[in-house]
């Protein structure tokens, strides 16, 4: 007899069931039940935000090189489970060719962004020639905790394309997965959990976007939102709720399989620029400065 997998949530590095004790059916293209997924709740969102906040300082304080290695490790882990992901995508209705392509592209994307983790800083910072005797420089910093509604078309590629650049920039994330194709998201969480990604850096919830998004969008400890294509009224009310603490909102109506939809921009979209004025002492008779 086959052992069926229980798909749970991924919060704070753990795999808890939803606190609401509910689940929903994931179906194949033919409408057959293939697994149950957790129907995440508002409380789950709040727990996930708390975990993401707790993990944020530790994540941003890892060296950029280390973040790069960890993200590359995710690629390695995904590669080693490639077959499982292809099977799962096919189970949820994709053709073999499209499943293979999506998983391969997902791995490539992880490798691509892994390389960015210690390079985007040089490209988005500046030393500014101010008129006074100061070393004045601008550097990027993460926004903090970002709420993500993952692509609702793809099961894996969109989630990776939206989430990984945020990690590269030092943010931690709370992701609402593709509702109908939720299995890949939770399997990806298993990849994360075995890839040296500290608990809480990525939190993944499955369930109804309409139920969970208002809590995520209105949460005062979330700094920004990354929204994929979702129903207009839902997107609008999320953006309205986001105003309470002036969350930065990015709307991605994108096909992430297109090559132009990976790049530095997806990292810098969730960075702040900090400018520091550091004094320069005028020593001896020399005139120093930058």
């Amino acid at each position: 007899m086959e052992i069926l997998k229980t798909y749970k949530l991924y919060i704070g590095g753990q795999f808890p069931r939803t606190e609401s004790g509910r689940s929903y059916q994931i179906q194949s293209a033919a409408g057959q039940a293939i697994a149950n997924a957790c129907l995440g709740s508002k409380k789950d969102i709040r727990n996930a935000v708390q975990a993401a906040r707790k993990a944020q300082t530790g994540w941003v304080n890892k060296s950029a090189f280390n973040r790069s290695q960890i993200i590359y490790r995710i690629a390695e882990m995904l590669e080693s489970r490639k077959v499982q992901f292809i099977d799962e995508l096919m189970l949820m209705g994709q053709t073999e060719q499209s499943a293979v392509e999506e998983v391969q592209l997902s791995i490539d994307r992880l490798v691509y962004y892994a390389g960015w983790a210690d390079k985007y800083q040089a490209l988005s910072s500046s030393v500014n020639p101010v008129s006074s005797s100061h070393f004045n420089f601008s550097v990027p910093e993460p926004m903090g905790v970002v709420g993500v509604v993952a692509c609702q078309k793809t099961a894996l590629l969109g989630l990776i394309s939206q989430t990984i650049p945020l990690l590269v920039g030092g943010n931690t994330v709370v992701v609402i997965a593709n509702t109908l194709k939720a299995l890949s998201a939770i399997s990806f969480a298993e990849v994360l959990a075995t890839s040296d990604v500290p608990g809480g850096v990525v939190n993944i919830l499955t369930g109804d976007v309409a139920e969970m998004l208002p809590t995520l969008a209105g949460h005062m400890d979330v700094n920004a939102l990354s929204l994929s294509t979702i129903p207009e009224d839902l997107s609008r009310s999320a953006q309205e709720a986001a105003i309470d603490n002036l969350k930065r909102c990015q709307l991605y109506h994108l096909d992430f399989s297109a090559p132009q939809n990976q790049g530095l921009q997806f990292i810098t979209d969730f960075l702040e620029i900090k400018t520091t004025w550091h004094p320069i002492e005028q020593v001896a008779s020399g005139i120093g400065g930058y």
Binding site: S132, N136, N245, L246, W277
Partner: peptide
């Protein structure tokens, strides 16, 4: 300074 970026975090 004109060369120095200015702007905020959060609210």
């Amino acid at each position: 300074d004109p060369a120095s970026p200015f702007g905020g975090y959060k609210e």
